[in-house]
Design a protein around this nucleic acid. Structure first.
Lengths: 187, 187
DNA sequence: CGCTAATTCGAGGCACCCCTCGACTTACTC
DNA sequence: GAGTAAGTCGAGGGGTGCCTCGAATTAGCG
Protein backbone atom coordinates (compact mmCIF):
# COMPACT_ATOMS: atom_id res chain seq x y z
CA UNK A 1 0.00 0.00 0.00
CA UNK A 2 2.87 2.43 -0.50
CA UNK A 3 1.03 4.90 -2.66
CA UNK A 4 3.54 6.08 -5.20
CA UNK A 5 2.44 9.66 -4.64
CA UNK A 6 4.24 12.22 -6.74
CA UNK A 7 7.30 13.59 -5.01
CA UNK A 8 6.95 16.53 -2.69
CA UNK A 9 7.37 19.97 -4.11
CA UNK A 10 10.79 21.43 -3.33
CA UNK A 11 9.60 23.87 -0.67
CA UNK A 12 7.48 21.19 0.94
CA UNK A 13 10.38 18.78 1.15
CA UNK A 14 12.53 21.47 2.72
CA UNK A 15 9.91 22.27 5.32
CA UNK A 16 9.40 18.64 6.11
CA UNK A 17 13.09 18.33 6.88
CA UNK A 18 13.11 21.45 9.00
CA UNK A 19 10.16 20.12 10.95
CA UNK A 20 11.80 16.78 11.55
CA UNK A 21 14.99 18.43 12.71
CA UNK A 22 13.16 20.76 15.04
CA UNK A 23 11.00 18.03 16.48
CA UNK A 24 13.95 15.70 16.93
CA UNK A 25 15.84 18.29 18.91
CA UNK A 26 12.90 19.36 21.04
CA UNK A 27 11.78 15.81 21.72
CA UNK A 28 15.29 14.93 22.78
CA UNK A 29 15.64 17.61 25.34
CA UNK A 30 12.15 18.53 26.44
CA UNK A 31 10.36 15.24 25.98
CA UNK A 32 7.54 14.15 23.73
CA UNK A 33 5.03 16.64 24.95
CA UNK A 34 6.51 19.88 23.76
CA UNK A 35 3.76 22.10 22.38
CA UNK A 36 3.26 21.68 18.64
CA UNK A 37 3.59 25.43 18.31
CA UNK A 38 7.13 25.30 19.63
CA UNK A 39 8.10 22.75 17.05
CA UNK A 40 6.62 24.85 14.28
CA UNK A 41 8.33 27.99 15.52
CA UNK A 42 11.70 26.27 15.84
CA UNK A 43 11.30 24.98 12.28
CA UNK A 44 10.39 28.50 11.13
CA UNK A 45 7.17 27.24 9.68
CA UNK A 46 3.57 27.96 10.52
CA UNK A 47 1.48 25.74 12.70
CA UNK A 48 -0.76 24.96 9.74
CA UNK A 49 2.18 23.64 7.78
CA UNK A 50 3.23 21.44 10.63
CA UNK A 51 -0.20 19.84 10.68
CA UNK A 52 -0.19 19.48 6.92
CA UNK A 53 2.92 17.34 7.10
CA UNK A 54 2.23 15.58 10.37
CA UNK A 55 -1.45 15.58 11.27
CA UNK A 56 -0.64 13.97 14.57
CA UNK A 57 2.08 14.08 17.17
CA UNK A 58 2.28 10.34 16.66
CA UNK A 59 3.17 10.86 13.02
CA UNK A 60 6.10 12.94 14.09
CA UNK A 61 7.16 10.37 16.64
CA UNK A 62 7.02 7.52 14.18
CA UNK A 63 8.98 9.50 11.64
CA UNK A 64 11.73 10.18 14.14
CA UNK A 65 12.12 7.31 16.54
CA UNK A 66 12.47 4.11 14.57
CA UNK A 67 15.95 5.14 13.61
CA UNK A 68 16.88 5.91 17.16
CA UNK A 69 15.38 2.74 18.45
CA UNK A 70 17.86 0.85 16.32
CA UNK A 71 20.30 1.62 19.08
CA UNK A 72 18.28 -0.71 21.26
CA UNK A 73 19.09 -3.62 19.01
CA UNK A 74 22.72 -2.72 19.04
CA UNK A 75 23.06 -2.71 22.79
CA UNK A 76 20.88 -5.80 23.09
CA UNK A 77 23.09 -7.76 20.78
CA UNK A 78 26.21 -6.43 22.37
CA UNK A 79 25.00 -7.60 25.75
CA UNK A 80 24.02 -11.02 24.46
CA UNK A 81 27.43 -11.41 22.89
CA UNK A 82 28.95 -11.09 26.33
CA UNK A 83 29.76 -14.58 27.55
CA UNK A 84 29.23 -13.64 31.18
CA UNK A 85 25.48 -13.58 31.92
CA UNK A 86 25.79 -11.19 34.82
CA UNK A 87 28.14 -8.80 33.11
CA UNK A 88 26.00 -8.87 29.98
CA UNK A 89 22.89 -8.04 31.94
CA UNK A 90 24.53 -5.20 33.81
CA UNK A 91 26.04 -3.80 30.64
CA UNK A 92 22.66 -3.82 29.01
CA UNK A 93 21.07 -1.80 31.77
CA UNK A 94 23.94 0.62 31.75
CA UNK A 95 23.80 1.17 28.00
CA UNK A 96 20.04 1.37 28.01
CA UNK A 97 19.87 4.13 30.57
CA UNK A 98 22.74 5.93 28.94
CA UNK A 99 20.52 6.21 25.89
CA UNK A 100 17.73 7.52 28.05
CA UNK A 101 19.99 10.05 29.62
CA UNK A 102 20.89 11.41 26.21
CA UNK A 103 17.36 11.61 24.91
CA UNK A 104 14.42 12.44 27.02
CA UNK A 105 12.09 11.64 24.16
CA UNK A 106 13.34 8.09 23.98
CA UNK A 107 12.63 7.94 27.59
CA UNK A 108 9.03 9.02 27.05
CA UNK A 109 8.61 6.60 24.17
CA UNK A 110 9.70 3.66 26.29
CA UNK A 111 8.31 4.74 29.61
CA UNK A 112 4.87 6.03 28.83
CA UNK A 113 2.85 3.85 26.57
CA UNK A 114 2.18 6.47 23.96
CA UNK A 115 3.71 4.82 20.96
CA UNK A 116 1.11 3.30 18.69
CA UNK A 117 3.17 3.52 15.57
CA UNK A 118 3.84 -0.01 14.34
CA UNK A 119 7.53 0.58 13.74
CA UNK A 120 7.96 1.94 17.22
CA UNK A 121 5.99 -0.88 18.76
CA UNK A 122 8.00 -3.54 16.97
CA UNK A 123 11.28 -1.94 17.97
CA UNK A 124 10.09 -2.01 21.56
CA UNK A 125 9.15 -5.64 21.23
CA UNK A 126 12.54 -6.51 19.86
CA UNK A 127 14.10 -4.60 22.74
CA UNK A 128 11.90 -6.43 25.21
CA UNK A 129 12.93 -9.71 23.59
CA UNK A 130 16.59 -9.01 24.17
CA UNK A 131 15.92 -7.93 27.71
CA UNK A 132 13.89 -11.04 28.38
CA UNK A 133 16.65 -13.29 27.06
CA UNK A 134 19.26 -11.51 29.13
CA UNK A 135 17.12 -11.84 32.23
CA UNK A 136 16.44 -15.53 31.66
CA UNK A 137 20.06 -16.27 30.96
CA UNK A 138 21.17 -14.53 34.13
CA UNK A 139 18.53 -16.23 36.24
CA UNK A 140 19.37 -19.66 34.85
CA UNK A 141 23.03 -19.01 35.54
CA UNK A 142 22.01 -18.36 39.13
CA UNK A 143 23.39 -14.83 39.23
CA UNK A 144 20.16 -12.83 39.10
CA UNK A 145 17.30 -12.89 41.58
CA UNK A 146 14.85 -15.39 40.20
CA UNK A 147 11.87 -13.13 40.87
CA UNK A 148 13.07 -10.44 38.50
CA UNK A 149 10.93 -10.18 35.40
CA UNK A 150 10.59 -8.15 32.26
CA UNK A 151 7.71 -6.18 33.74
CA UNK A 152 9.95 -5.27 36.64
CA UNK A 153 12.32 -3.89 34.06
CA UNK A 154 9.59 -1.66 32.73
CA UNK A 155 8.98 -0.36 36.22
CA UNK A 156 12.68 0.07 36.79
CA UNK A 157 12.85 2.01 33.57
CA UNK A 158 10.20 4.45 34.67
CA UNK A 159 11.90 4.85 38.02
CA UNK A 160 15.26 5.41 36.37
CA UNK A 161 13.68 7.95 34.04
CA UNK A 162 12.71 9.85 37.14
CA UNK A 163 16.21 9.63 38.56
CA UNK A 164 17.75 10.76 35.29
CA UNK A 165 15.53 13.81 35.16
CA UNK A 166 16.17 14.51 38.83
CA UNK A 167 19.95 14.13 39.12
CA UNK A 168 21.30 13.61 35.62
CA UNK A 169 24.86 13.19 36.80
CA UNK A 170 24.08 10.56 39.38
CA UNK A 171 21.94 7.95 37.69
CA UNK A 172 24.79 5.51 37.30
CA UNK A 173 25.33 5.37 41.03
CA UNK A 174 21.68 4.72 41.65
CA UNK A 175 21.58 2.05 39.03
CA UNK A 176 24.60 0.30 40.45
CA UNK A 177 23.09 0.24 43.91
CA UNK A 178 19.93 -1.25 42.53
CA UNK A 179 21.84 -3.75 40.48
CA UNK A 180 23.70 -4.89 43.57
CA UNK A 181 20.36 -5.61 45.15
CA UNK A 182 19.40 -7.67 42.14
CA UNK A 183 22.26 -10.12 42.51
CA UNK A 184 21.08 -13.58 43.37
CA UNK A 185 21.60 -14.27 47.04
CA UNK A 186 21.58 -10.61 48.06
CA UNK A 187 18.49 -11.10 50.18
CA UNK B 1 0.73 38.23 65.00
CA UNK B 2 -2.33 36.02 65.39
CA UNK B 3 -4.94 38.60 64.48
CA UNK B 4 -7.81 37.88 66.78
CA UNK B 5 -10.27 38.34 63.95
CA UNK B 6 -13.90 37.81 64.87
CA UNK B 7 -14.99 34.23 64.49
CA UNK B 8 -16.23 33.08 61.11
CA UNK B 9 -19.88 33.28 60.40
CA UNK B 10 -21.58 29.91 60.76
CA UNK B 11 -22.03 29.28 57.04
CA UNK B 12 -18.46 30.33 56.36
CA UNK B 13 -17.11 27.98 58.98
CA UNK B 14 -19.14 25.16 57.52
CA UNK B 15 -17.89 25.84 54.02
CA UNK B 16 -14.34 26.05 55.22
CA UNK B 17 -14.67 22.61 56.70
CA UNK B 18 -16.24 21.22 53.57
CA UNK B 19 -13.43 22.67 51.51
CA UNK B 20 -10.78 21.20 53.74
CA UNK B 21 -12.40 17.80 53.64
CA UNK B 22 -12.76 17.87 49.87
CA UNK B 23 -9.22 19.05 49.32
CA UNK B 24 -7.82 16.52 51.74
CA UNK B 25 -9.49 13.68 49.92
CA UNK B 26 -8.61 14.86 46.44
CA UNK B 27 -5.04 15.67 47.37
CA UNK B 28 -4.68 12.22 48.85
CA UNK B 29 -5.76 10.33 45.84
CA UNK B 30 -5.12 12.57 42.88
CA UNK B 31 -2.12 14.52 44.07
CA UNK B 32 -1.58 18.18 44.81
CA UNK B 33 -2.43 19.45 41.39
CA UNK B 34 -6.10 18.66 41.16
CA UNK B 35 -7.93 21.55 39.55
CA UNK B 36 -9.26 24.03 42.05
CA UNK B 37 -12.65 23.68 40.41
CA UNK B 38 -12.78 20.03 41.36
CA UNK B 39 -12.14 20.83 44.95
CA UNK B 40 -14.86 23.45 44.94
CA UNK B 41 -17.33 21.13 43.25
CA UNK B 42 -16.61 18.29 45.64
CA UNK B 43 -17.14 20.67 48.53
CA UNK B 44 -20.40 21.84 46.94
CA UNK B 45 -19.23 25.39 47.03
CA UNK B 46 -18.50 27.88 44.29
CA UNK B 47 -15.05 28.53 42.99
CA UNK B 48 -15.24 32.07 44.29
CA UNK B 49 -15.86 30.81 47.79
CA UNK B 50 -12.89 28.52 47.59
CA UNK B 51 -10.67 31.45 46.71
CA UNK B 52 -12.20 33.54 49.46
CA UNK B 53 -11.11 31.00 52.03
CA UNK B 54 -7.87 29.89 50.43
CA UNK B 55 -6.50 32.44 47.99
CA UNK B 56 -3.75 30.05 47.04
CA UNK B 57 -3.29 26.34 46.58
CA UNK B 58 -0.47 26.72 49.05
CA UNK B 59 -2.90 27.95 51.68
CA UNK B 60 -4.87 24.79 51.27
CA UNK B 61 -1.75 22.68 51.48
CA UNK B 62 -0.53 24.33 54.62
CA UNK B 63 -3.92 23.99 56.23
CA UNK B 64 -3.99 20.27 55.52
CA UNK B 65 -0.53 18.81 55.66
CA UNK B 66 1.11 19.84 58.90
CA UNK B 67 -1.12 17.40 60.73
CA UNK B 68 -0.29 14.59 58.37
CA UNK B 69 3.37 15.34 58.49
CA UNK B 70 3.27 14.59 62.17
CA UNK B 71 3.36 10.96 61.08
CA UNK B 72 6.87 11.61 59.88
CA UNK B 73 7.99 12.38 63.39
CA UNK B 74 6.34 9.26 64.67
CA UNK B 75 8.07 6.93 62.27
CA UNK B 76 11.34 8.77 62.67
CA UNK B 77 11.29 8.32 66.41
CA UNK B 78 10.15 4.76 66.16
CA UNK B 79 13.08 4.00 63.86
CA UNK B 80 15.54 5.75 66.16
CA UNK B 81 14.24 3.77 69.09
CA UNK B 82 15.26 0.60 67.32
CA UNK B 83 18.58 -0.52 68.79
CA UNK B 84 19.70 -2.12 65.54
CA UNK B 85 20.97 0.60 63.18
CA UNK B 86 20.29 -1.38 60.05
CA UNK B 87 16.86 -2.57 61.06
CA UNK B 88 15.96 0.92 62.18
CA UNK B 89 17.01 2.39 58.88
CA UNK B 90 15.12 -0.18 56.84
CA UNK B 91 12.03 0.20 58.98
CA UNK B 92 12.12 3.91 58.45
CA UNK B 93 12.17 3.61 54.69
CA UNK B 94 9.40 1.07 54.79
CA UNK B 95 7.17 3.19 56.97
CA UNK B 96 7.96 6.31 55.01
CA UNK B 97 6.94 4.88 51.69
CA UNK B 98 3.91 3.24 53.22
CA UNK B 99 2.76 6.74 54.07
CA UNK B 100 3.43 7.81 50.51
CA UNK B 101 1.50 4.89 49.17
CA UNK B 102 -1.51 5.92 51.20
CA UNK B 103 -1.41 9.55 50.24
CA UNK B 104 -0.33 10.78 46.91
CA UNK B 105 -0.47 14.34 48.14
CA UNK B 106 2.09 13.64 50.83
CA UNK B 107 4.16 12.23 48.09
CA UNK B 108 3.92 15.46 46.11
CA UNK B 109 4.65 17.57 49.16
CA UNK B 110 7.87 15.70 49.87
CA UNK B 111 8.94 14.95 46.34
CA UNK B 112 8.35 18.15 44.48
CA UNK B 113 9.57 21.23 46.20
CA UNK B 114 6.28 23.03 46.23
CA UNK B 115 5.87 23.53 49.91
CA UNK B 116 6.69 27.05 50.97
CA UNK B 117 4.47 27.04 53.97
CA UNK B 118 6.63 27.40 57.06
CA UNK B 119 4.91 24.60 58.97
CA UNK B 120 5.36 22.24 56.08
CA UNK B 121 8.96 23.23 55.60
CA UNK B 122 9.79 22.72 59.26
CA UNK B 123 8.10 19.33 59.34
CA UNK B 124 10.21 18.36 56.36
CA UNK B 125 13.31 19.56 58.12
CA UNK B 126 12.49 17.53 61.19
CA UNK B 127 11.92 14.54 58.96
CA UNK B 128 15.20 15.12 57.20
CA UNK B 129 16.89 15.38 60.60
CA UNK B 130 15.64 11.97 61.62
CA UNK B 131 16.64 10.51 58.30
CA UNK B 132 20.08 12.05 58.56
CA UNK B 133 20.60 10.61 62.02
CA UNK B 134 19.46 7.18 60.92
CA UNK B 135 21.79 7.28 57.95
CA UNK B 136 24.76 8.40 60.01
CA UNK B 137 24.13 5.82 62.65
CA UNK B 138 23.94 3.05 60.09
CA UNK B 139 27.06 4.20 58.30
CA UNK B 140 29.02 4.48 61.52
CA UNK B 141 27.89 1.00 62.47
CA UNK B 142 29.35 -0.14 59.18
CA UNK B 143 26.09 -1.57 57.87
CA UNK B 144 25.17 1.06 55.28
CA UNK B 145 27.16 2.09 52.23
CA UNK B 146 29.23 5.05 53.31
CA UNK B 147 28.40 7.04 50.19
CA UNK B 148 24.70 7.14 50.91
CA UNK B 149 23.52 10.61 51.86
CA UNK B 150 20.39 12.49 52.70
CA UNK B 151 20.19 13.95 49.22
CA UNK B 152 20.27 10.44 47.85
CA UNK B 153 17.27 9.78 49.99
CA UNK B 154 15.45 12.65 48.36
CA UNK B 155 16.20 11.16 44.98
CA UNK B 156 15.18 7.73 46.16
CA UNK B 157 11.95 9.23 47.39
CA UNK B 158 11.14 10.68 44.00
CA UNK B 159 11.98 7.39 42.33
CA UNK B 160 9.86 5.46 44.78
CA UNK B 161 7.02 7.88 44.22
CA UNK B 162 7.17 6.90 40.59
CA UNK B 163 7.15 3.21 41.45
CA UNK B 164 4.24 3.63 43.82
CA UNK B 165 2.20 5.37 41.15
CA UNK B 166 3.21 2.80 38.58
CA UNK B 167 2.71 -0.49 40.42
CA UNK B 168 1.10 0.33 43.75
CA UNK B 169 1.14 -3.26 44.90
CA UNK B 170 4.77 -3.84 44.22
CA UNK B 171 6.68 -0.99 45.77
CA UNK B 172 7.80 -2.99 48.75
CA UNK B 173 9.58 -5.48 46.53
CA UNK B 174 11.36 -2.72 44.68
CA UNK B 175 12.35 -1.03 47.87
CA UNK B 176 13.74 -4.21 49.34
CA UNK B 177 15.86 -4.84 46.27
CA UNK B 178 17.24 -1.35 46.50
CA UNK B 179 17.83 -1.67 50.19
CA UNK B 180 19.82 -4.84 49.63
CA UNK B 181 22.03 -2.87 47.30
CA UNK B 182 22.54 -0.29 50.02
CA UNK B 183 24.02 -2.73 52.49
CA UNK B 184 27.63 -2.00 53.23
CA UNK B 185 29.86 -4.40 51.39
CA UNK B 186 27.34 -5.16 48.64
CA UNK B 187 29.59 -3.69 45.99
C1' DC C 1 -38.15 42.23 62.24
C1' DG C 2 -34.81 44.99 59.69
C1' DC C 3 -30.11 46.31 58.67
C1' DT C 4 -25.54 45.67 57.49
C1' DA C 5 -21.41 43.55 56.90
C1' DA C 6 -19.82 39.14 55.79
C1' DT C 7 -20.22 35.63 52.59
C1' DT C 8 -21.47 33.42 48.37
C1' DC C 9 -21.92 32.97 43.56
C1' DG C 10 -20.54 32.30 38.77
C1' DA C 11 -19.79 34.75 34.54
C1' DG C 12 -15.91 36.17 32.31
C1' DG C 13 -10.99 37.70 31.40
C1' DC C 14 -6.45 35.63 30.86
C1' DA C 15 -3.22 32.08 29.45
C1' DC C 16 -2.06 27.84 27.43
C1' DC C 17 -2.58 24.24 24.11
C1' DC C 18 -5.15 21.75 20.56
C1' DC C 19 -6.43 21.60 15.72
C1' DT C 20 -9.10 23.40 11.26
C1' DC C 21 -10.08 25.89 7.29
C1' DG C 22 -10.32 29.19 3.69
C1' DA C 23 -7.67 32.81 1.56
C1' DC C 24 -3.24 33.62 -0.22
C1' DT C 25 1.24 32.30 -2.37
C1' DT C 26 4.41 29.54 -5.00
C1' DA C 27 6.68 25.76 -7.52
C1' DC C 28 6.29 23.24 -11.38
C1' DT C 29 4.22 22.06 -16.19
C1' DC C 30 3.33 23.06 -20.88
C1' DG D 1 4.80 33.43 -19.00
C1' DA D 2 0.19 31.53 -17.73
C1' DG D 3 -2.43 28.19 -15.39
C1' DT D 4 -3.09 25.24 -11.67
C1' DA D 5 -2.41 22.05 -8.19
C1' DA D 6 0.31 21.92 -4.13
C1' DG D 7 1.71 24.19 -0.33
C1' DT D 8 1.68 27.88 3.27
C1' DC D 9 -0.21 30.87 6.50
C1' DG D 10 -2.35 32.35 10.79
C1' DA D 11 -6.71 33.84 12.66
C1' DG D 12 -9.91 31.69 15.23
C1' DG D 13 -12.91 28.06 17.46
C1' DG D 14 -12.76 24.55 21.15
C1' DG D 15 -11.06 22.86 25.50
C1' DT D 16 -8.93 23.36 30.22
C1' DG D 17 -7.37 25.67 34.14
C1' DC D 18 -6.34 29.93 36.85
C1' DC D 19 -8.17 33.67 39.25
C1' DT D 20 -11.15 38.24 39.97
C1' DC D 21 -14.87 41.10 40.86
C1' DG D 22 -19.43 43.04 41.29
C1' DA D 23 -24.11 41.71 42.10
C1' DA D 24 -27.02 38.83 44.97
C1' DT D 25 -27.71 36.54 49.23
C1' DT D 26 -27.74 35.67 54.17
C1' DA D 27 -26.31 35.28 59.15
C1' DG D 28 -26.56 37.46 63.18
C1' DC D 29 -26.90 41.84 65.83
C1' DG D 30 -29.84 45.17 67.95
Amino acid sequence: MVTASRPLRADAARNRQKLLAAAAELFADRGLDVPMEHIARKAEVSIGTLYKHFPTREDLVSAIFPERLAALDVIGEKALADPDPWHGFVTYLDDLYALHAEDRGLNDVLAKDLPNAPEVVSACHRGAGHAETLIMRAITAGVLRPDFSITDMATLTRAMAQVIRDVPGEWRRFLSIYVEGLRAGSG
